[in-house]
Structures are given as structure tokens and as C-alpha cells.
Design a protein around this nucleic acid. Structure first.
Lengths: 125, 125
DNA sequence: CCGAATCCAGACTGATACTG
DNA sequence: CAGTATCAGTCTGGATTCGG
């Protein structure tokens, strides 16, 4: 990766694709939850709280599809399914956490800018 | 930011919100295009190529709203509008580029994992 | 040249109910 | 416990048209 092609449309689109992929409502949340080790379905559900079964299933399926997590089924009664980050998933965690840290540190600045912008635009109503 | 609260639901959701915000189809692309200095509307449109006017307008409005870019109008004829990253925008560029670099380096691994997963699931059709 | 406004198709989300 | 199925509401992106 040279610096000269950092602005190629194709190159930039690759970035956008990954961000759009992991930038949905739940993916990053789940990846960070799995960052400290494997968890089972119901644990993740409780940890996140507000996620629906369907969205947790969908999110985990997507992560499994892209090779970020492994899904392990124990055919016991009652059934038990563990999810764990793969090597690829753990590598992804590094830049994701960096961006997440930035996000948390700058959340207020963004909120402030947004409020000021919105305040400005309300005047024409 | 301590390590102990990295897994708080609230804390993680902040990350998710920011990623969802910048993780749409065009935002990162535009931010990276502006990474080397200001550009005008039509320049960005040409650089990206496939974006529609509406989405470029929408994306730039959102970036302006959140304080990532400034919009400067020159009331000349024909009109001219320049967009430039703010300090906040340039700071965002750092972690975004890190994640982007990771994305570009690992794009094939993700594509490969996805293909294998899809191949596996096609069998039941 | 820049971009606002409108309309529309498709994707995404989530609540609910049901299965192994 | 861990999903799947269905359906309704919302959000998104794009084409088109119009205005300053």
C-alpha cells in the first residue's frame, strides 16, 4: 500500500465497503462484546439488552459469513451455541477499538456541532 | 477512558452510533477525498464518479452538520462552493485511515471467507 | 454550476408468533 | 435455549425535475 493511491476511487471504496459492512447498528457492539472471549447467544442478548433475537441472529450470521466469528453448537438439551472471534475478528478489533475510542472521546464535540447546526436551521421554520 | 468500562453497553453503543453514522455508503469516501485539501462540489462528484447529486449533497450536509466539514459559498457567477475538513474532520481521518488500511489489506480474506460460507450454504438449495 | 424538492423501489428493523 | 417465519413500519438511495 503506497501513499500515492490512497485517493483512488477504487481504493477508497474498499474502505467504505468495510465501514458500511461493520457500521450497522449492532455489528461493532457484538464484536466488542466478544473481544474478551467466547459467549453464548443468550449471554450476548443479555449483555446488549435492547437487541431483538432476530437482529442478534442476523448480526452473528453476517459476522460468521465474513469470517469474523466461529459458531459452535453443542447438541445438548437444552441446546447451547457459543460464538467466538476468529483470528481475523481479533485483528479487526484493533482498528475498531481505535475508532471506537476516538468516537467516545469526541462524542460531545459532534453532538455540540450538531446542536448548533440544527439551532441555526430551525430559524427559518 | 478506562479499560474497565469498555464493555458497558452504553459505551459500546456510542461506538456503534459513530460507526453507523460514518459507515454509510459515501461518507468515508468523501472524507478521504477531502483529506488532501479543499475541493468543490463538482470536483468531488467527478472524483467519485458513481455518486448522484442528491447523495453527495446529503452526505456533505451530514458532514457539515456534525462539524466535520465547512462549506464556503462564493457568490460568483457561476456559483462555486468549496468543502474543507475542519480540525475535527482531520482528526477523524486518522482512525478512519487506519481502519481503511486494515480493510484494504484484508479485503481478500473477507471475500474468501464469504465465498466459502456461501458455497457451503448453496448445497441445501 | 450548485443543489433543493419530489417521487418511488428496495433494503433494513423490529414485534410477534412458532419450531426443534 | 436458540433459532425461524411473517408482516408492518421505517429508512435509504437513485432518477427526475426544477430553481438561484
Amino acid at each position: 500500500m503506497t501513499l500515492s493511491n490512497l485517493h483512488d476511487t477504487d481504493t477508497c471504496r474498499a474502505t467504505g465497503e468495510i465501514l458500511a459492512r461493520i457500521g450497522d447498528k449492532w455489528t461493532v457492539l457484538v464484536v466488542e462484546m466478544l473481544g474478551d472471549g467466547p459467549h453464548r447467544f443468550s449471554e450476548l442478548r443479555r449483555m446488549i439488552g435492547s437487541i431483538s433475537q432476530k437482529m442478534l441472529t442476523t448480526t452473528l450470521r453476517g459476522l460468521e459469513r465474513d469470517g469474523f466469528v466461529t459458531r459452535t453448537v453443542y447438541p445438548t438439551i437444552p441446546p447451547r451455541v457459543d460464538y467466538e472471534l476468529t483470528e481475523l475478528g481479533r485483528e479487526l478489533l484493533v482498528p475498531v477499538r481505535a475508532l471506537g475510542e476516538w468516537a467516545r472521546e469526541n462524542r460531545e464535540r459532534i453532538a455540540k456541532a450538531r446542536d448548533e447546526f440544527d439551532l441555526c436551521c430551525e430559524q427559518k421554520q
